[in-house]
Design a protein around this nucleic acid. Structure first.
Lengths: 337, 337
DNA sequence: TCAGGCTACGAAAACGTTTTAGTAAAGCGA
DNA sequence: TCGCTTTACTAAAACGTTTTCGTAGCCTGA
């Protein structure tokens, strides 16, 4: 059915090796034969076989993506799906397909690394996952070219959204609007959370703000319900904050909900911000003031550096690439009463 | 580096074929040797090579997904990303990986079908794409096992959300609330659009409603801006409808926007509904009344039928599997004034 | 005792490529 | 003319599996 390189060679009256070289652009093939072969290939509908090629050449032109979060939202995760989309587009532009990595393929359990070896992916992009998972650490310890999003493994490439700058901008923004009593609802311990917390404290201090410990609340990312609870606690205090920063747009909806239920108007009675800049924020009323992470650039850079790492392992790529973010001024921050 | 079956055979003092059979559960291998081999494989960290296996066995255990829309929202598409996520999960449960199919891998242009042949995917799932695209039609005409979401190709498997039922429920719901003047903003011509339109007309007729032609507007899916325009036109009419059905949740935001700008309150002054049941609808205020498509079941069923088709091509699977949908009663429909 | 049938294993071909090593033919300088 | 290089091609091994076919040894029944 499918025509192989052998048949193609026969049709051309050439050897298999010549045809292979002609198709792969070897210099030792004359222009004449090359065009002959290319024409014949087209006419015969010849498509090379990726598996045979990968088997021999030890390159699969396949990139793995590891991608999950504790809530198993997977592809439906508003933030990471946009990163992944642009990762995929850039990978394709560079000649790579992308395959999801998981650890149970059918009945056979595999670790992530084993799955990568099984499919012989040329490299892997890790995002939005528990980076302390032993299997992920095993992956990071392997020889496999690897890029992570928002987490730095020692000696590994990492695409970092500039969380320091983001929180700094955000705090200064609400400060500029007149807020001095600022609470911060952050996510669970992770690289990202830590950076944002550091930045929050640093900026608060440099602005001379005194933030009581109990205005910092730990919640879950991507989980409005937990933020709802935390926001309620904050708002019930006699001497409550005038502004609540939530470290996740989607979860910030929980804070809006809480405020609404308590009869507080946003932004008149209480200011609220998010973080991420997902599309949703600009579709709700009032529009959420937030930090927009450049997800498109993050995905593109991840694919770019990963393929570069694969194709020329020698070149030293900076370990961390920091992607700047921008402030989206919505309608959820106003001067405090 | 990586240990091959040959080395494993040497370690066990067995032949390559015996080892292969032991690992693949052939009956002709004694229990004794099998456990020996399995233990040795584990100890040696043996992982089979998917490419070699695919090359020989003509099965890649890889499923392609073809997935794009005219706005190139790709994975960020709220509706289809949830379908894809559950497709992926079910595929993995059944032992298949999933790879995206596209048509330009690097510099070499390929048709979708060529890409499938290149990667030797065992089957493909097509969703959310222009089904009249010649390349998609070529795919549908091929021998490749195939399942589509929401479009019926002749003789091919299709997972259909029950659009007839959905629109019927929706129209009856607003009718029940007292609406008689109902407009419908639908998407561009497609299988889905057609079914919904048919259902709209049929139900309207059976309820004795008389819908003037200019209350039907064609817009783009996933595009609030175009719906915004259409809604404005509808609302500016002297004798305007009391309820507008929009065939897409996300785009329905455009209608809400238009109403808001014209000083009309939803649902007091005008009722609006969406369609799809994406998460967003229950996060905005007021919550959108809509039809929820069972995206999880759609994805799962797509993966199930596709793998079944691959593994036993003989068994006749019904051409179309219809997935029921449910009404989500939000806060955007009230009795007309 | 022997034909026949299991049982448990092995040899080797095959899958479709890429790549190394080799080689005729042509070109070239002296 | 001769030796040497260059050009343009070919032969064949290899990549890591699966699978067909073959077979040695054992058991069984008459």
């Amino acid at each position: 059915m499918e025509v192989t390189i052998r048949e193609l060679a026969a049709r051309c009256g050439l050897s298999v090796s010549t045809v292979s070289k002609a198709l792969n652009g070897y210099a030792e093939i004359s222009e004449e034969t090359r065009s002959l072969v290319v024409a014949a290939a087209k006419e015969a509908g010849y498509i090379p076989n990726a598996h045979a090629r990968a088997l021999k050449a030890k390159q699969s032109y396949n990139l793995g993506v590891l991608f999950s979060d504790d809530k198993h939202s997977g592809l439906t995760h508003a933030f990471f799906s946009t990163v992944l989309e642009s990762f995929k587009q850039e990978a394709e532009r560079r000649g790579y397909d992308v395959t999801f990595i998981s650890h149970n393929i059918g009945s056979t359990q595999m670790t992530y690394l084993e799955h990568c070896r099984y499919r012989e992916v040329d490299g892997i992009c890790i995002a939005c996952i528990d980076f302390w998972n032993p299997e992920v650490i095993q992956l990071a310890g392997s020889k496999l070219p690897l890029v992570t999003i928002d987490h730095q493994f020692n000696g590994r490439m990492c695409i970092q959204s500039d969380n320091i700058q983001g929180i700094d901008m955000l705090v200064r923004h609400v400060y500029g609007k007149g807020h001095r009593r600022i609470a911060y609802i952050h996510g669970r311990r992770s690289t990202v959370t830590d950076m944002r917390l550091v930045s929050f404290h640093r900026t608060a201090q440099s602005l001379g703000l005194d933030i009581p410990e109990h205005w910092l609340k730990e919640c879950h990312y991507n989980d409005p319900a937990s933020v709802y609870e935390a926001a309620k606690q904050l708002l019930q205090q006699p001497n409550r904050p005038t502004c609540i920063l939530v470290s996740d747009d989607f979860a910030a909806l929980g804070a809006l909900e809480a405020a609404g239920e308590m009869g507080l108007k946003v932004p008149e009675d209480i200011s609220i911000t998010g973080y991420d800049g997902i599309a949703l924020t600009q579709l709700i009323k009032p529009k959420l003031t937030t930090i927009k992470q450049d997800t498109v650039l993050m995905g593109t850079e991840a694919a770019r550096t990963l393929t570069q790492l694969i194709e020329s392992p020698k070149t030293t790529i900076p370990e961390t690439i920091v992607i700047p973010c921008t402030l989206i001024e919505g309608e959820t921050v106003a001067a405090p009463q």
